[in-house]
Simulated assay, not measured.
Amino acid sequence: MATIKLVILPHAVLKDGTHRIRIAVNHQGITRYIPTRFKVETLTQFRDGQVLNRPDAHTLNIKLRNLLNDYEERLYNIPSLQLYSCTQLKEILHNGTTIDKPSTFQAVATEYIEELRQDKRDNYATLLERNCRYFTNFCKGDILLASITPYIIQNYVRYLKKNYRMNDTTIDMFISRTRTIINRARKQNLVHYDIIPTSVHKIQSPPERELDITIQEIITIRDSSPEERKLIVARDVFMLSYYLGGANLIDILSYDFRNTSHFEYVRTKSRNTKTGDKRISLTIPSEAEPIIERWVNKNTGKLDFGYKFSYSNFSRYMNRGIKSLAESLHIKHKVTYYSARKSFVQHGFELGIPLEILEYCIGQSMKKNRPIFNYLRIMRDHADKAIRTILDNLKLDYPH
Rank of each mutant, 00 (worst) to 15 (best):
M1H: 08
A2I: 06
I4W: 02
A12G: 01
G17F: 08
T18R: 14
H19N: 08
I23P: 01
N26G: 00
Q28C: 09
R32E: 14
T36G: 03
K39D: 01
T42F: 03
L43N: 09
Q45K: 11
Q50N: 10
T59Y: 10
L60W: 02
L67D: 00
L67Y: 01
L67Q: 02
R74Y: 04
R74S: 04
N77E: 14
I78E: 05
I78K: 03
S80L: 07
S80A: 15
L83C: 00
S85F: 06
K90C: 11
E91Y: 06
L93T: 02
P102Y: 04
A109I: 02
I113M: 07
L116Y: 00
R117A: 00
D122F: 06
D122W: 05
N123L: 14
Y124K: 11
T126D: 15
L128D: 01
N131L: 00
T136G: 09
F138Y: 15
D142R: 04
T149Y: 11
Y151M: 08
L160F: 06
K162A: 12
M166E: 06
I175W: 05
I175D: 05
I175S: 08
R177Q: 14
I181F: 06
N183H: 15
N183T: 10
R184M: 13
Q188A: 14
Q188W: 07
Y193V: 07
I195R: 12
I215P: 01
I218T: 03
D223V: 05
R229P: 01
I232S: 04
G245Q: 09
A247F: 00
A247S: 10
A247H: 00
S254W: 00
T260Q: 08
E264G: 01
T268L: 04
S270H: 05
G276N: 07
G276D: 06
K278T: 10
R279S: 07
R279V: 10
I280N: 01
I284S: 08
E287D: 12
E287N: 09
E287F: 05
E289D: 09
E289S: 09
E293Y: 02
E293S: 04
V296D: 02
V296Q: 10
K298T: 11
K298Q: 13
T300K: 02
L303W: 02
D304C: 03
Y311M: 14
Y311L: 15
F314D: 05
S315C: 11
S315R: 14
S315N: 14
R316I: 10
I322F: 07
A326D: 10
I331M: 06
I331K: 03
K332R: 10
T336Q: 09
R341L: 13
R341E: 12
K342I: 11
S343A: 07
G348F: 00
E350C: 04
L355I: 13
C361L: 06
K368I: 09
K368P: 00
N369L: 08
R370M: 12
P371Q: 09
I372V: 08
Y375G: 00
D381M: 08
D384G: 03
K385F: 10
I390Y: 12
L396G: 02
D397A: 14
Y398Q: 03
Y398D: 03
P399Y: 13
